[in-house]
Design a protein around this nucleic acid. Structure first.
Lengths: 336, 336
DNA sequence: CTGAAAGCGCTTACAG
DNA sequence: CTGAAAGCGCTTACAG
């Protein structure tokens, strides 16, 4: 096959130990010896075999990412953030798409264990007992991203979804909206589903507004589901909402499309606020007012937390909550 | 650390060879022996160490993807296609972002060699002598995607960019457009840059139309660059084009934005056709007419070619050219 | 500063 | 059908 450490040792007339020392710079080597070795390495194009090293050192240099969805407009940004810090640490990123299916997720997790990944960045939606068994048994360092799993003992990187949703709805209220609908996500998704709904609910409550159950419809974060949810809101209500809060930009865009198709002007007839600030938000017309989340930052932070965990191997639960901010664009109108 | 093959062998009262045989199903093992072993594996949660196996078998089960751009709306789809077939083969995908920088690209390539990747899916834009040296020396099975590198000897998966561009422009011509501008990519990008321009050029020529050099501006495939290119076209020409062909949807959307900002109605005042059919194309208003490329398919095919190459290790150049089709939406008007 | 040797966790002829 | 042993390509005490 390729050239091995043995080959270069022989060619340089030294022991493999010396070669190992120079490629890892792990122990002093006499200058002349070093030079000889370096020369041979250059000539032969020798590259150390990471599997052999990994086997010996018990580390693979590999980090795994499990994501339920690569098409939500958030994935590329997240990966970008992850990549940037992984690269600095000379590691590599393995990506895997669970498609939101628990079976698939678990399977990947086990494969990751076999591949001896040094750590996992886990973006799932549920945390079942099978998950618990897995993490208890194998103890692969893991941080969850864009989600929290209380009781899992896993560190997480997320935003305060409750607070962000609360502020989004409060923003609508401050713009004098009172009839506020919501297209929410499924409740089994604690962060983007439940918490964002809770924020909506409390914001209304605190403003003395009551939540109208025919004003809240469930979607699954896709554009299409947002469209369908809005159709229901439109058809089920005599008195239409003046504003709608969608738990994701994609759903917000579905809402927007639906409004447009039904001859409702945005924001003249109806205001919309989304969540995430994906690129789509700025190309759609009118441009979407939304709450900005820096997914690239989430990615970076999750690797940082993970690296800490790998090194110190502390079991202490830790976490990071990123900032968010409401970015005003063109889909929310101030009522007079 | 974890439980090893030795542990399960001891616990089951057999040799490690037998354990190896049952986990790999590589040779017949007596039913009772097998059962004992399986039982111990289940109890202990034993997972074979892929690095040890890989070292021995000289294969890592890892495929690497090098991409210059993760934010072009095409990446997620490509990865999705790649993932789907990689998964079927129980392999894993390592992704790496070169950001279009040759240095970074080369560095990744070398890391991939160290990591003993079984194969590489390479999406680059240039093929330098350093690339050549690399592939000549290490012979890591590689297929290039969304690009061709004639003379590299590397198989590729792409579409016929010349033909697709030709047809896009011809579509405009058939709609009676004669003043056709183009926002092209850089020429060092042979596929999406040069070939698409060539298609534009020839289509005009074959229709007896002459190409007006102040009608063609260069962008770098981003929305912003499309916007800027269109600004130039607008400012430098007395007589405006009636249609513009953009070498990517993102640039087309930039063109669209620019038109809208300059009170030009699309498609009433000016028609636009893009290239790629990314998701953005359908959410923008008016919806973008474009040439559809199935990037997911490109991803699948590239892995298939790669797997063939890994298995047979034939050096014969091979390739796959995917279909494309023009999808009519709302940005092209038929002139009367 | 240097090298011989053990060992990381597997697979696979080889012998029985 | 089964096991002892060699060996994949490294790193790292250990001895010098």
């Amino acid at each position: 096959m390729g050239v091995t450490i043995k080959d270069v040792a022989k060619k340089a007339g030294v022991s493999i130990a010396s070669v190992s020392r120079v490629i890892n710079d792990s122990k002093p080597v006499a200058p002349e010896t070093k030079e000889k070795i370096l020369k041979v390495i250059k000539e032969t194009g020798y590259k150390p075999n990471a599997m052999a090293r990994g086997l010996k050192k018990n580390e693979s240099g590999l980090i795994g990412l499990i994501t339920p969805d690569m098409e939500n407009g958030t994935f590329a940004e997240l990966v970008k953030g992850i990549e940037s810090v992984i690269e600095k640490n000379s590691m590599n990123l393995i990506v895997s798409n669970s498609k939101g299916e628990i079976e698939r997720e678990l399977r990947e997790l086990h494969i990751f264990k076999e591949q001896q990944l040094d750590g996992i960045i886990f973006s799932g939606v549920k945390f079942t007992k099978k998950h618990k068994e897995y993490f208890d048994r194998y103890k692969v360092p893991t941080v969850v991203v864009s989600q929290k799993f209380p009781g899992s003992g896993l560190p997480y990187v997320d935003i305060d979804n409750y607070k962000a949703a609360y502020q989004a709805v409060d923003f609508l209220i401050k713009n004098n909206h009172q009839q506020i609908a919501m297209v929410r996500g499924p409740f089994y998704d604690k962060s983007a589903g439940k918490q964002r709904y809770n924020g909506y609910f409390e914001a209304l409550k605190d403003a003395g507004l009551k939540v109208n159950s025919s004003f809240v419809k469930e979607g699954n974060f896709t554009i299409k589901s947002g469209y369908q949810a809005m159709e229901k809101i439109l058809s089920e209500n005599e008195m239409l909402p003046t504003a709608v809060f969608a738990a994701s930009d994609r759903m917000a865009i579905g809402v927007l499309d639906c409004c447009l198709d039904n001859n409702l002007k945005v924001p003249e007839d109806i205001s919309i606020i989304g969540f995430d600030d994906i690129e789509l938000a700025t190309v759609v017309r009118p441009k979407l007012t939304t709450v900005r989340v820096d997914h690239s930052k989430l990615g970076e932070k999750s690797v940082e937390l993970l690296l800490n965990k790998i090194k110190k191997n502390k079991d202490s639960e830790s976490f990071y909550e990123a900032d968010f901010e409401i970015v005003e664009r063109e889909t929310v109108k101030k009522l007079t």
